[in-house]
Design a binder for these strands. Structure first.
Length: 526
DNA sequence: TTCCGTTGCGCG
DNA sequence: AAAGCGCGCAACGGAA
């Protein structure tokens, strides 16, 4: 039993406000996007209205402008309203909407059955739809956020909250010092071009004002600027204005965009939920009597590569605890070298000693190296590649084809290599996103099944409050912490089975039960 | 005035 | 230590 609807992003928030929770759904818009992508038609509108028009050979309604903030076409809004009007009112378009839903749904089932691996694509469609439910629920429930902790952190770093539009005292002081360091010439530290000119006037030539560039130059303004930039960024991106806009009643309510990244990762539409500075994790605190269970998939992408490639030696290493340590033997016992080799293989880097390490990787783990290199070659030749569950990368643009058609075209080789790096990384990143999405889909019903004193959908329930690529946070009553930890582990194992079948590769999730997000184990190995 | 490309940095 | 991939967001500054 599942709901079939035009878009969870549009239909579900109103239901949540009305106290209704949905277990499963089929999200027409998200599945349409997957199917269009599968057929090399990434740019086309994926709404119910567009799919319905295509099905009947009619003109496809224009896509709403992305910048307008409205993610759906107006036609779909009409459809959605009609679908959810109370039954006793007249809804003249209702039959049409239901006809469209039924017809497009049936068509999508047929199209899903026609690919190379229909079962995998159906799994991807189900997981994407479940992700849309989780995203709407997380936006609705919100991430526990203590504004007073946030304010104290800001005040400690920047000085007390300034009047609107004013620089905080710490930034104002640094700006004065920077001006003094340039011999009293006024310079706006927020303006890269002014800074480049100011450095030039002092005989220091800089290519840009990036932090890494500033770290390498000898000028009294450089260390001041490094401090200024770090604090100014915090103030601009996650300062008091952010707090006012995004945190209400002790909850941060971000807007997730499921499938917002070509690789299948989520994006955000506001609030920057996927870019929260680590220092602000101190403000994420469980309610009294509650706790946060923070789960982090350890070394997810190299493990995904091991499972994808079916490289026996590599998969054997990924069956144990620390993947890089297991691989270190092949690199003279140096864990760091193993990590560099893996990251270079997945990202396409070859600078420094990476080239040598890649050669070692190729010799010792030929199937793993061969997998990403085949993906890179496909991209360089203008072909598309797919994730393990069948999410497809976009084809090259017309501009790319033009620029790479002739070897004499300046930059042709550079464009070719860039697309190779993109497709090389896509197969890994997108397959990791597949796994994480299935993890979420498996975890939701497990959390519901844990129940609560007030019932499974009542205020005492364990619920997801955060999802960031390979990391989840569940907010639950303290007594549910252990069952939640077990649920995350069990969901991870099921995700591994569903996505990769029988493989020796394990996908361990490290969990931390904490009252404050900042106290969860720092990501990244030793 | 608004719009848009660039720069720079936060996260994975 | 940095690098290779994927993003969102804010500020700047020139164009329209």
């Amino acid at each position: 039993m599942r709901w079939v609807w035009p878009s969870a992003a549009w239909c579900y928030p109103d239901l949540l406000s009305a106290g209704v929770r949905v277990a499963r759904c089929h999200d027409i818009a998200l599945v349409e996007a997957l199917l269009l992508g599968r057929d090399g038609r990434h740019g086309e509108t994926a709404t119910l209205a567009a799919a319905w028009a295509r099905l009947r050979g009619e003109r496809v309604p224009r896509q709403a402008a992305a910048a307008s903030g409205a993610p759906q076409a107006a036609a779909l809004r009409v459809a959605q309203q009609a679908l959810f009007q109370p039954a006793e009112t007249e809804w003249p378009e209702g039959d049409i909407v239901l006809d469209a839903l039924a017809a497009v749904y049936a068509d999508q089932l047929v199209r899903m059955a026609t690919g190379d691996a229909p079962a995998r694509l159906r799994l991807l469609a189900a997981a994407e739809s479940a992700g849309a439910l989780a995203a709407a629920e997380m936006s609705f429930d919100g991430l526990p956020w203590r504004p007073e902790v946030h304010d104290e952190l800001l005040a400690g770093l920047l000085g007390p909250r300034p009047a609107r539009g004013e620089r905080p005292s710490r930034l104002a002081g640094l700006a004065e010092q920077i001006t003094a360091a340039f011999g009293g010439r006024p310079v706006n530290p927020d303006s890269p071009s002014q800074l480049v000119r100011a450095f030039a006037a002092d005989g220091v030539s800089v290519s840009s004002t990036r932090s890494e560039v500033l770290r390498g130059i000898d000028h009294p303004a450089a260390p001041l600027l490094l401090q200024y930039k770090e604090l100014a960024r915090l103030h601009a991106a996650h300062g008091w204005a952010w707090l006012d806009s995004w945190v209400t009643a002790g909850r941060f309510h971000p807007e997730y965009v499921v499938g917002g990244v070509v690789s299948g990762r989520w994006a955000t539409n506001g609030g920057g939920a996927l870019q929260i500075p680590r220092v602000l994790r101190r403000a994420v605190v469980a309610d009294p009597g509650w706790t946060l269970v923070v789960g982090d998939a350890a070394q997810l992408e190299p493990r995904v590569l091991a499972a994808l490639a079916g490289d026996r030696a590599f998969a054997q290493a990924a069956a144990a605890g620390d993947l890089y340590s297991e691989l270190a033997g092949a690199f003279g016992g140096d864990r760091g070298k193993a990590k560099v080799a893996l990251l270079s293989a997945m990202y396409g880097g070859a600078g420094g000693e990476a080239g040598q390490l890649l050669a070692v990787l190729r010799r010792r783990f030929p199937d793993a190296a061969g997998y990403v290199e085949a993906a890179a070659r496909a991209g360089e030749e203008g072909r598309v590649v797919r994730s393990v569950l069948g999410r497809t990368c976009p084809p090259p643009s017309a501009a790319w084809r033009l620029a790479t058609a002739s070897a004499t075209e300046p930059g042709a080789a550079r464009s070719v290599r860039a697309r190779g790096r993109f497709t090389r990384n896509f197969v890994v990143q997108a397959s990791a996103a597949d796994w994480a999405l299935v993890l979420i889909a498996c975890l939701r019903p497990r959390l519901t099944a844990l129940g609560a004193p007030t019932g499974p959908s009542g205020p005492g329930r364990a619920h997801l409050v955060f999802f960031q690529h390979d990391e989840v946070i569940v907010h639950c009553r303290e007594e549910l912490a252990e069952p939640v930890v077990a649920a995350i582990g069990s969901a991870a194992r099921e995700a591994g089975r569903l996505v990769f079948g029988s493989t020796p590769v394990r996908f361990p999730v490290t969990t931390a039960v904490v009252s404050c997000y900042a106290d969860a184990k720092a990501r990244g190995g030793p």
